[in-house]
Design a protein around this nucleic acid. Structure first.
Lengths: 127, 127
DNA sequence: GCGGTCTATTGACAATATGTCTATAGTGTT
DNA sequence: AACACTATAGACATATTGTCAATAGACCGC
């Protein structure tokens, strides 16, 4: 832990929930099957900076989720352009997303607690 | 990324913000100097399960923050009982906490966006 | 007096997670 | 022909977290 901002990798890099890519990708796949690059592009909807997001991160996450049995993929049948893998969520992936949702609610509450305590302390000091 | 819950380390382990210990410890030190073990005990206030939280994690985080110049510590002057290090936040630590607060607000908003999208999709499906 | 638990701290090693880079390849534009 | 975008994936490095062992004082129960 070099120390968050200003040192080491990704200066100014934001700290998000660990493995946050996972529930985002699972959720997008709930809306329908998609291929990797379009999922990548959809991540800006959840706060990812697409200019800084290396595509290999997304593809590795997709592969890992497939290894875990939450999604499945098959090569599309394009006749034109590069071949694309089409990903689809499985029932196990749906269940996993339910767990993620419960866990993210708790994580949000924990962040809220710290932020509220911080803001309350700032107010009491200035009064 | 074996896949969150059910496999690998920490079965059922929750996924929180990376390095979340850091702002929690910094905030507690804003309230006044404290020694390591009391900071450890105060972490239940922010969602940490004290029964599962290894003290070495907290002490390492404190050391890392001291290395980064955000806190300072000195050996207390107890005549009885084991010696204790007393930690104190520095102005740089205060500034770093301000950055953490801004970042945590964004992280909370990102979680909110995913949770709202998820709940909206669940409702549209059942209607 | 001894064993166990709690308090108090720290380092070493292992495991997990993320970041970066390289590579291949098709299409479209300049 | 070069560049950018699309599309995918592996290797290597770095960052972060988890676990274990170690030391030691105080207190409590037996």
């Amino acid at each position: 832990m070099p120390g968050g901002w200003g040192t080491g990798r990704g200066q100014g890099r934001r700290r998000r929930v660990m493995s946050f890519l996972q529930p985002c990708l699972l959720f997008m796949l709930k809306s329908g099957e998609a291929h990797g690059y379009s999922l990548l592009n959809g991540l800006d909807e959840f706060g990812f900076d697409l200019e800084r997001l290396d595509p290999s991160l997304v593809y590795r996450a997709l592969r890992d989720m497939e290894d875990s049995g939450w999604v499945v993929s098959n090569w599309g049948e394009e006749s034109q352009g590069p071949q694309r893998r089409v990903y689809k969520i499985l029932p196990e992936g749906d269940e996993h997303l339910v767990q993620w949702v419960a866990d993210l609610r708790r994580t949000r509450d924990e962040i809220d607690r710290l932020l509220c305590a911080y803001e309350n302390q700032s107010q009491s000091i200035t009064q």
